[in-house]
Design a binder for these strands. Structure first.
Lengths: 244, 244
DNA sequence: GCAACGCTTCGGCCATCGCCGAAGCATCGT
DNA sequence: ACGATGCTTCGGCGATGGCCGAAGCGTTGC
């Protein structure tokens, strides 16, 4: 009876209250650090670390190391679907059980959360929204460990003044395609945005065009009036309360 | 944090190897007895009994008592879907893990398995197939503890010579609607067939019409040539190897 | 560099829970 | 009525596994 054991093991992994809380906390697709997940589960980081190792080895979670932080997220949409199907069977009819004390992440500064630089590229709600739009349109793909710009994506960015030629040359000189286009886990949104040479070229071009402006003494970034016009339209952003 | 605990509890229930094996054994929709499930899980009946009580209380299983047998089955299609989604996440890609020693159920006698009487109504593969067809067409509904014949179902049976009038009168005299139409767990197939006054009227009519014939010294039943013609057509049965 | 921080590994404590033998109830068959 | 069968409850044993404190890397930032 080989694989019936794996089946039970998977379920047993989910069945522990601490691990269950961590998994539920990850169900919105964000990636959280071990310490944050420990808090969500009400256990110490040591204990959480062990749990996370097991969950990752079992293929339920995937982990990305970024500096001294280890970001954990659900390994696939299949895992999320499985968790939801368990919830649907659970007595309480509701599709989502009461959230486990919504973990607050990231900078308190609203402006930073909205848009900022992350090394050489953009981050924050704005950058994540841009990446989402491009993914939805099939202009770009972002995997945990890489990404790819489609022909349409290249044309789109070029039309916005992004110099992909230079980005490509730069990437080739500094380590090949993996540098050209890659995801970066957004540290307030906990979802991927566009990094690599492409991401750098995007921010460089748009600062140069005067569509983006840095906030004094901060990593925060604001869209200028012309930026709202051009980028807001190009990325189909809701032109909402973008005012600083 | 109310319902997150239920979530974990459900998964923990599935996570025990013995319980997992029992659940997997039930995934084909059959209903099995506690002892059979104990064998499938490789544990003693006492232990299985406790497990089954927990699974039932958690809403994963439903139980029907029939004499001294307690038939357990998955509580709903949702539960089956949930189990499948867990399997799909489990490392081994295959949708069904190696079956846990396919439980052999029921009489060895092939003729008995095919068709027989069960008190006053029909049982066996034939009866289960008939019930399945009628359910699929919306002519009848069978719940664990009752059933209902639709208008179309009544017309269909009447066209096959079944005297539903008499059955109704009989049922009313002997305890109300619950007697009229109800399911009976088929003891070889472990799936429901039609019992109650309706089931009795069906077998009575068809014996009278010469479409069914009892086998000497046995509860086994065979379809006659005319029965194959009429019932085979009416129930859309594959006219396969029905030969005794 | 050094201290702070995040994460991990190690060791040992403790509770939970699965397991079975024995015994008690219900049902069936003769 | 009797024994056989199916299921359940009870009690106690044993092991798995979660938990934390302490300590050991690696990264960050001053």
């Amino acid at each position: 009876m080989p694989s019936t054991a794996e089946f039970a093991e998977t379920a047993a992994l989910i069945g522990d209250p601490a691990r269950a809380n961590m998994l539920i906390a990850l169900m919105d697709g964000r990636a959280l650090t071990a310490t944050e997940l420990a808090r969500a589960a009400g256990i110490t980081p040591q204990t959480a670390s062990g749990h996370l190792a097991h969950l990752t080895e079992a293929g339920l979670l995937a982990m990305t190391r970024q500096g001294r932080h280890h970001y954990h997220r659900l390994a696939s949409a299949d895992v999320a679907r499985m968790l939801e199907s368990i919830m649907s069977v659970t007595a309480g009819r509701r599709p989502f059980p009461t959230r486990p004390a919504r973990t607050v992440t990231g900078p308190r500064d609203a402006a930073l959360r909205r848009a900022r630089t992350c090394y050489d590229h953009l981050a924050g709600q704005l950058a994540v929204a841009m990446a989402d739009r491009m993914i939805a349109r099939g202009e770009i793909e972002l995997f945990p460990d890489g990404g790819a710009l489609s022909g349409g994506g290249a044309a789109f960015l070029s039309s916005l003044g992004v110099d992909l030629e230079a980005a490509h040359v730069y990437a080739m000189r500094r380590g090949g395609g993996r540098i050209f286009c890659r995801p970066c886990l957004d540290w307030s949104e906990r979802r991927p945005h566009i990094a690599g040479a492409v991401g750098a070229a995007m921010s460089r071009a748009w600062f140069a065009h005067g569509w983006l402006r840095r906030v004094e003494g901060s990593r925060a970034v604001t869209l200028t009036r012309s930026g709202e016009m051009v980028l807001g339209k190009a990325f189909d952003l809701g032109l909402g309360e973008q005012a600083a």
